[in-house]
Design a protein around this nucleic acid. Structure first.
Lengths: 207, 207
DNA sequence: GCTGTTATTGATCATGTGATCAATAACATC
DNA sequence: GATGTTATTGATCACATGATCAATAACAGC
């Protein structure tokens, strides 16, 4: 049993701390990111975490941004490989509604509230929302160009789609039962909004 | 300047405390409901609040339920006075999206996160979600009966509509700009979902 | 007016938070 | 091996939380 933690490169240690904070956020929420909590996970004194992260609020904001940006990028990359806009939008909905990202959803929801008292986090939230919106807007605009979508207001529609997804995911966080066919109901709603042919967004052939 | 708070009936004092907690929740959020905070607002010692509310977690859960239930009831009553299901659903969307209830939305969002560590609150959240869902489901079913809506799954559609509204409102909490015509975009989406004629949900004549 | 009930106080305890910093010890360099 | 740099510690501060409870004082009924 070693009393003192092994001495490491500042870069290494900093990475460890960020990683620990990320894990804590995903498992227990952003508000569980505390100096002592992170320190314990790394196996280090609390003072060391404070030494590397001069400000907890900023650490939280940074972790939030890292987690969410990774997801955005991942999905964006996935969409790039899909040829047609309707399929792309359908995949977007499907991917975001598959309940495999509920931990990230929980972080979004918590950030909305925490941003009220953490200005750095609030800024990160706005930034990441914009990033998401840009991705969705790109898909919608692609559909307009190809003539498969018909809407005059791609930016607003993109925001709307995002809001719907967030709301439905937040709902699933608390109450996952009672709702069947979440994906196809949403697909139908979005079809109505972007002016697509009914069923156009279903990547799998209609049953 | 009176040192000691005037002696009051337990019922009176209890009502004061609940009222103070409600105001704090709406102004600063559920997590601002603390013994000392509530006590200060009422103008009594912190111990007295603890005396009337043996458990802060339950107080928070109760305040949440009171605030949200009042809103549900208010909207339900409003809808009762509207004759046709499409108009009723349109009014529902309009009412919930008019940004006059953002304080209540903030409480919903916070409750979703806080429910993670407050079991009583989590139970209240589920309860109040069910109440909302019942209201929406009633409207949808009315439209099915009248032949103006066409969907085979009223319960799921109701959940879906709720989720969308919540998500869009939560979004408005953080970022109110950049989105125009939130109401009409949503109306179009919901029309697609309930199988209504396009424009059927707009209470005002289409421009 | 006296007396008993009880609404109210405020100090206290155990915890938890972020932040600070002198002291320590491990490592690299000479 | 000695020396200097610096990663690391852990005690400490000020503050906030929920909860408890003996002491106090205001009121009602006699």
């Amino acid at each position: 049993m070693q009393k003192r933690a092994a001495r490491k490169t500042p870069a290494e240690r900093a990475a460890e701390i960020v990683q620990a904070a990320r894990e804590i956020a995903l498992e227990q929420g952003l508000s569980a990111i505390t100096l002592r909590n992170v320190a314990a996970r790394v196996g280090v004194a609390s003072g060391l975490v404070a030494h590397y992260e001069p400000n907890v609020d900023k650490l939280v904001a940074g972790i939030f941004a890292a987690i969410v940006a990774a997801e955005t990028e991942e999905v964006a990359n996935l969409l790039e490989q899909i040829p047609t806009p309707p399929e792309r939008l359908g995949t977007l909905l499907e991917t975001l509604m598959d309940n495999s990202r509920l931990d990230v959803t929980a972080i979004w929801v918590e950030a909305w509230t925490l941003g009220r008292r953490n200005e750095a986090l609030a800024a990160s939230v706005r930034e990441q929302m914009d990033a998401w919106q840009a991705v969705v807007q790109g898909v919608v605009e692609g559909g307009i160009k190809s003539g498969e979508f018909e809407t005059s207001d791609a930016p607003s529609v993109a925001w709307q789609i995002l809001g719907m997804i967030d709301g439905l995911n937040a709902q699933a966080l608390v109450r996952w039962d009672g709702v069947s066919d979440r994906g196809s109901h949403l697909a139908r709603a979005v079809e109505g909004m972007v002016g697509a042919v009914r069923g156009a967004l279903l990547s799998r052939p209609t049953a």
